[in-house]
């Protein structure tokens, strides 16, 4: 499913890139205000198309204020743009979160990742690549079988850090290392209060859009396709990742401790490497 969406997106990307090139050419002769409004129209069109493809035409309800999407207004480092996704269900609301899908409209493959979550997960933070000025959409599926959407706008910085791996050699030697960190609670709190943890994995997450300068062939797509994390036997987080997830995928999330004694993770990349790790649950501090 995820791979299917990825493939389609890349084809669409080529078309989008051509369209963008045309827009860029238009810049040269058009007043910037006119160009800006045509860009905005283009952005809306890409979302409609992506939403239709990625969610099979299902209706998307306004997600505000049930879900929130936090990103910086300006992508300071285009390779590492922090994003935080949350659900804020009011007290007494019995619905729970099933999944979060992050879409970076103008990126080559717009669907950045889908996170399926276990009980008690209400916040996920990760880092993404942002190629250009773009709308970003977050779609949440709740236990009422409905989809909810919110969006924000990110300005890519015309700076020096391109959204791709910087240190390919070092990345290759440390491939697949997984680190897991459990954060202490800031105050003494009962067990029903969520804790936060972070999982990070060394991986170049090559987008498949870069060219080898000798062969002039595209460097193949090489990304972490799926990352799963269990608390005891309970799956608490599953990421189906795309090419927009930054090098060395890094996910911080909230969860409810379930009394298990270990965390276990498994990651699979597009070349079929499987990376695993296991860590003891640290006592509440």
């Amino acid at each position: 499913m995820t791979r299917h969406v990825g493939k389609e997106s890349r084809i669409r990307l080529m078309i989008a890139m051509c369209a963008r090139a045309a827009t860029v050419a238009a810049f040269a002769v058009t007043m910037s205000s006119i160009a800006a409004s045509s860009l905005a129209a283009e952005a809306n069109d890409s979302w409609r198309e992506i939403a239709n493809d990625a969610f099979n035409g299902r209706p998307l309800a306004d997600g505000s204020p049930l879900i929130t999407l936090e990103m910086p207004e300006r992508a300071e480092d285009a390779a590492i743009v922090p994003v935080t996704m949350r659900t804020n269900l009011p007290p007494g609301d019995t619905r729970t979160l099933r999944s979060l899908t992050l879409v970076i409209d103008e990126n080559p493959s717009p669907v950045a990742a889908t996170f399926n979550v276990g009980p008690g997960v209400t916040m996920i933070s990760t880092r993404v690549r942002v190629n250009s000025y773009t709308k970003v959409h977050l779609v949440a599926e709740l236990s009422d079988d409905k989809l909810y959407v919110v969006d924000t706008y990110v300005k890519a910085s015309g700076g020096c850090s391109a959204p791709m791996a910087n240190n390919a050699e070092e990345a290759a030697t440390k491939l697949g290392q997984i680190r897991f960190r459990q954060f202490a609670k800031t105050t003494a709190a009962p067990a029903s209060v969520p804790r936060e943890a972070q999982i990070m994995i060394r991986h170049p997450n090559n987008s498949g859009l870069q060219r080898d300068q000798v062969s002039l062939l595209y460097i193949p797509l090489y990304i972490v396709r799926q990352l799963r994390l269990w608390q005891g036997d309970q799956l608490i987080l599953e990421m189906d990742g795309g090419i927009s997830i930054s090098e060395n995928p890094n996910i911080r999330f909230s969860y409810l401790p379930n009394g298990a004694s270990t965390f276990r993770a498994e990651a699979v990349d597009t070349e079929g490497h499987v990376f695993r790790g296991e860590w003891p649950v640290e006592p509440t501090m």
Partner: peptide, 30 residues
């Protein structure tokens, strides 16, 4: 060479708003 080939197209695109048509002539020369 790798750096310029990988990043060149991105730079040409991302500096377009700031630099405009001055970039038309720019070629990535490794």
């Amino acid at each position: 060479p790798r750096d310029m080939m990988e990043r060149g197209p991105y730079y040409l695109n991302s500096f377009r708003p700031a630099m405009g048509t001055l970039l038309d002539e720019v070629k990535i020369v490794p």
